[in-house]
Amino acid sequence: MTSPLDKSRTAADTLRGGPRRRGVRTGVPLPLLVPALLGLAFLMVPLVALLARAPWQGLPEQLTSPEVWQALRLSLLCATAATAVSLVLGVPLAWLLARVDFPGRGLVRALVTLPLVLPPVVGGVALLMALGRNGIVGRWLDAWFGITLPFTTTGVVIAEAFVAMPFLVISVEGTLRAADPRYEEAATTLGASRFTAFRRVTLPLIAPGIAAGAVLAWARALGEFGATITFAGNFPGRTQTMPLAVYLALQSDPEAAIALSLVLLAVSIAVLAGLRDRWLRAG
């Protein structure tokens, strides 16, 4: 437990201390308490059900099957690659949005965040229109370089990056806005070019924000379903990531689906643990 939370709790306890302690329980109005508890149950029961129905006996067997490993390996690989793409393109984009005043900046920012709210399936269709064999860009990729992106592992990475990058851009842009731009000025008065100032001063300063953004993007990429299945299809070993495998397994082998789900749940909890400090600090 981190100290801010502890502190607020002790402060609250002190306030309620002594004779007033009994009043606390009756002090929560029922119209708030009942929906609150229902909400909590609504969020928790499915997870509990997943754990309750898990085939713990056959789990080691399930998880060591080559199909699971294939899907997990592909998922981790593609999510990491998509995060890398998001970092390489997203951090400079965030910098541009935060530091350079250009006409239409608000519109560009809105467009960047669009994939956040766009249904992923629509994103997949849009990617097909752009990068498909007959897409406006894909046509030339095919004709000039013989590159085909849809229904390949690269296609998975592209679909995941498309959906995940906005998370990173938004997170990094927020951190950049909060960071004092005068550090960059100080660096330039010391002889650093604007790029050197960015690389040696700004980047280390916003590293925590970049890390948080990368974790968010990675988690989003790992769970990506709609855009992936639309743009890259569902070929085991090539484009079948964990979420696709879970969905497919549910129809033929529910136990395998549960086992796969548990793996994703474990990964999610690990991500949450990684972000915990940051979130608690924000609270």
């Binding site: 000025e185 100080a186 330039t188 008065t189 010391l190 002889g191 650093a192 070019s193 604007r194």
Partner: peptide, 8 residues
């Protein structure tokens, strides 16, 4: 600024 012999 980066090319000026100026310290701040």
């Amino acid at each position: 600024p980066e090319a000026r012999p100026v310290g701040v």
